[in-house]
Amino acid sequence: MTNSIFKTIIFSLLITFPLFASEWEKTTAENETQLFNVQVLESKGYEVKDNIEFSSTTEAHQRIQVKSEIMTTVDSVLVKAGNLVKKNDLVVKLDEYETNLELFALDLLSESEFKKIALYAPFDGILLDNHKIAGELVTPGEKVYELIDLSSLKIYGYINENEIMNISNENEVEITILGENVQGVIDYVSPIADPETKTFEIVVKVNNKDLRYKDGLSSIISIIKGKVLAHKISPSILALGDQGELGVKVITDNNLVGFKEIEIIEDTSDYMLVTGLDKIEKIIIVGQQYVSNGEKVNF
């Protein structure tokens, strides 16, 4: 009797198992087809320069007002405004200059006294047009003429405290003035922060021996901090993490959705350059808003 029952059970299993296996495979297939479909881009990262960029304006290397130390009148202006003058050129002749020159030549007038009347150019530069003219009275401490030196330019910028540790005079600098690329170096990094803004002043120096560029031109400075691995992505694929952090959704092992936080290092109207991703990433570019971290998907 027992053997008969056992044989009956075995026979029943042999008949029902294929049916059960078939149903299980069918259910599994249905579950697979129910996975959400996303579109994926295999993105390959590449090295880019990591920089700090700011806008500023050019300033002359030197600019000085030459002032009178005595009360007198202007005899004549010897240089036309806008023209170059050399160091020690006489730019504006004051009354009594010739007399004082003779006395100085005869050692009857000290050099310090002679320089009060002999307003020589202190450096090579360009005469600005806001000078005194012949016949005008000048008083002690009053400006007689102004000179500007454009042989090199200074461009000022301000770096926040989170970035200053990466900046020194050794950093490479990329400069554009009115859209033209020019060469320059970091000439000065302030050792102290502005107490109100917590920023540090830096000065970039640009060679301008040909005097091509003027004082007050728009410029863009990029200070290179180093190189980083970046991916070029579309802003439309961005997603937010559980804590509101900015990132993208990617495909990890076993077709599971993962979230990776990113940092934007360049943002244009067409694309973004971001860091924080591996060398090769499968980034979800369509459907990322409908899937969750850890969810299995089809792609």
Rank of each mutant, 00 (worst) to 15 (best):
L14R: 15
P235L: 01
Q65T: 13
V48P: 01
Y158N: 14
Y290V: 07
V77Q: 05
V248P: 01
S22A: 11
G258K: 03
L238D: 10
N51M: 02
P18A: 03
V48S: 12
V77M: 01
Q289I: 07
L119K: 02
I285V: 14
E25Q: 13
D89F: 08
L229G: 04
V91I: 12
S292P: 13
Q39P: 03
K49P: 15
D194W: 00
K80P: 13
I280R: 02
E69P: 08
D107E: 05
T268R: 14
F36G: 14
S219F: 06
I177N: 11
N83C: 02
E196H: 10
M272Y: 07
K225R: 14
L217Q: 05
V173M: 09
P191R: 06
I167K: 04
T139C: 06
V250E: 07
Y156E: 04
T28G: 09
V182K: 10
I220Q: 15
I117S: 05
A230E: 10
L229V: 02
V274T: 15
T268L: 12
F20Q: 10
I9C: 09
V77I: 00
L78T: 13
E102L: 05
Q183F: 12
S219E: 10
P140R: 13
I283Y: 12
L217H: 01
E53A: 04
I280V: 12
V257F: 03
G135L: 09
N31V: 04
N88A: 01
P122T: 00
L217C: 13
K260T: 11
V40T: 12
K93P: 03
L103R: 02
G226K: 06
D50V: 11
F36Y: 03
N83T: 07
D50Q: 14
I64E: 15
P191H: 10
T8W: 09
L106M: 03
S43H: 14
E136Y: 00
T16A: 07
W24Y: 11
E47W: 14
Y158P: 08
T2M: 10
V204H: 10
G287M: 09
D278W: 09
K225Q: 12
D129S: 10
E69I: 11
E113M: 07
S151L: 15
V286R: 04
N255P: 07
H231K: 11
P18D: 06
K87Q: 14
W24C: 06
F200D: 05
I202M: 02
I9T: 11
V85K: 08
P18V: 11
E266D: 02
I148Q: 12
T8Y: 11
V79T: 04
A29V: 06
S112V: 03
K132E: 01
V40Y: 05
T197P: 01
Y97H: 01
I9Y: 09
Y158E: 00
N254D: 11
E142A: 06
K232C: 05
E174Y: 12
